[in-house]
Write a protein that binds this DNA or RNA. Structure first.
Lengths: 298, 298
DNA sequence: GAAAACCATCGCTTTCACCGATGGAATCCC
DNA sequence: GGGATTCCATCGGTGAAAGCGATGGTTTTC
């Protein structure tokens, strides 16, 4: 089996189609003698003649063994063609891409990326994974959005700074910037202390600001609802309140923080040393572009 | 696609399984450097890396392109294995055989042949074709039984002489041999004048014997029934009356012909120059053996 | 820092794929 | 029948490349 070659099988199929070594050679771009040798090699590999050669102008004819071989050969060749087609599609940018994400990115950054990818590659297969763990399984993903550099064998590309803003029920603070120090002891709603939330809280603490966290939830909407309900204020990355519905909400008020807190940084991560698919490469380009647009419009 | 080789795909699959070029080489019986070059060749063929090599003791890892390629490669390799398995089975004698036959052979010669073949090759696929035309389609058959040499590009092997006997209603003729001359003008039932029947009738005519054919039918049983019913006698090859039911039938009487008519000759035919399958070769051997046994017992 | 595991690369030899030309065999056509 | 035609097999030659062994560079492990 090791000494069977697709080339030989292709030659055999051509000969069977044409009924002649010479014509098959013409079709394949070989010499007649080459086809003759290819068939001879194939016959040595399978251990018997696959064609009867009547000699003279009569067409060659499959032997019973040849019929068995050809039946499988055609399937093999079809599979080989399917493979090159799949490779070509892959190289053109179709195929599958697995992207890890989290809420802010899912809501704001990812939709235009997905739309652009699907516009450019209608047949591509985009799978999104919104992981909840602190350090998700980058192992099985092509790309992952994350608000940190990641650790281990991970390469990162910084997409944008996502500055923290204060979201409060209107009237809680005077309009305009708020000093973080004013939040000391204030009731606050917050995300769980994972990812950048933890870093941000450490930064507050470093400045001696210890807000009173009255409720933690991972749901952005839940946080905002609690703020609306008067449960407390919230320090949120701007992307979280990016949607028009928050800015247009009269019961809520956005305040810049002065002096500002170090912004949450959003990165695109991938396993170090991994070769990207064309689709992934393109996704990275688009992500950078989208992030720039958001930063400029921010 | 032409420059993809099964060898390379096998190497790739082994590397993917083992996670290491060196171990894959060991499994395949190659050197590490050879596997390295095989993968390099494959990567040139598909136009991109199929493995990421982290370097050091870390296992190599499929690239996205590699995943696409491997998926198809495994199918190709499975098909290739299926092909060698099919070829091996064929060489062992399994497979299909198409045999053309006619009534006497179907009744007497073929059953022991089929039984022996099926005993030796339980998985073989024996297809029988009882053609009615005078010169049937040998083209699509592996072997054909026929009471003549055939014409055109046909090779023949004589199996046996099948002498003609006279079948008459008991009492029509005195027991013992009958002279053909006594049949001149006698009422007779006969097969249609095809195949050897025509030759036999010409031979009778050559001897000046012109029986009165009162009925022709292709069915052996019909001929015998008509003889039983007293419609006339019949000159039949001995194989036709080979069954015990005829000899044991008190209403019928078998007479030798003296001087005897030239026997019908039964041949095994096949298309000239065709390579036989092992199954066909074996079938020929068995046919010769069975024919000898019949001749000896006849 | 030494050792170990791993893959790429470089000569080198040998195999073999392919070509062009030639020869033998069967058929077709006058 | 004999020449022309249409086949495929084979031979010698050339160039590519498959495989090997040895070497070197890289990364991890201890």
């Amino acid at each position: 089996m090791r000494d069977m070659e697709l080339r030989h099988l292709a030659a055999m199929a051509a000969v069977a189609d044409e009924g002649s070594f010479g014509r098959a050679a013409g079709r394949l771009g070989y010499t007649q003698s080459t086809v003759s040798q290819q068939i001879a090699a194939l016959e040595k590999a399978v251990g018997g003649a696959v064609f009867d050669r009547p000699g003279g102008p009569k067409p060659v004819r499959l032997t019973p063994l040849g019929a068995v071989v050809l039946e499988h050969a055609r399937e093999l060749l079809a599979r080989a063609r399917a493979m090159t087609a799949a490779v070509d599609r892959f190289r053109a940018g179709d195929g599958r891409i697995d992207i890890g994400t989290f809420q802010s990115v899912s809501n704001v950054i990812l939709p235009p990326i997905v739309r652009t990818l699907r516009d450019e590659h209608p047949d591509c297969d985009i799978r999104l994974f919104e992981e909840e763990a602190d350090t998700p399984r980058l192992r099985d993903l092509d790309l992952m959005f994350f608000d940190g550099r990641g650790d281990g064998d991970v390469e990162h590309l910084k997409l944008l700074d996502d500055p923290y803003v204060l979201v409060a029920r209107r009237g809680t603070f005077p309009d305009g910037p708020v000093r973080p120090a004013h939040l000391d002891g204030a009731p606050m709603v917050a995300h769980p202390p994972i990812c950048d939330q933890a870093r941000m809280e450490r930064e507050l603490a470093r400045r001696g600001v210890r807000p009173h966290i009255v409720f933690r939830t991972a749901g952005n909407e839940s946080v905002l609802s609690m703020v609306r309900a008067g449960m407390g204020s919230a320090i949120l990355p701007r992307l979280v309140v990016h949607g028009g519905d928050v800015r247009a909400d009269d019961t809520l008020c956005l305040h810049e923080l002065r002096p500002e807190l170090p912004a949450r940084e959003i990165f695109l991560l991938w396993q170090a040393g991994r070769t990207h698919s064309p689709l992934a490469t393109r996704a990275i380009e688009i992500a950078v572009h989208v992030a720039d647009a958001i930063t400029r419009s921010g």
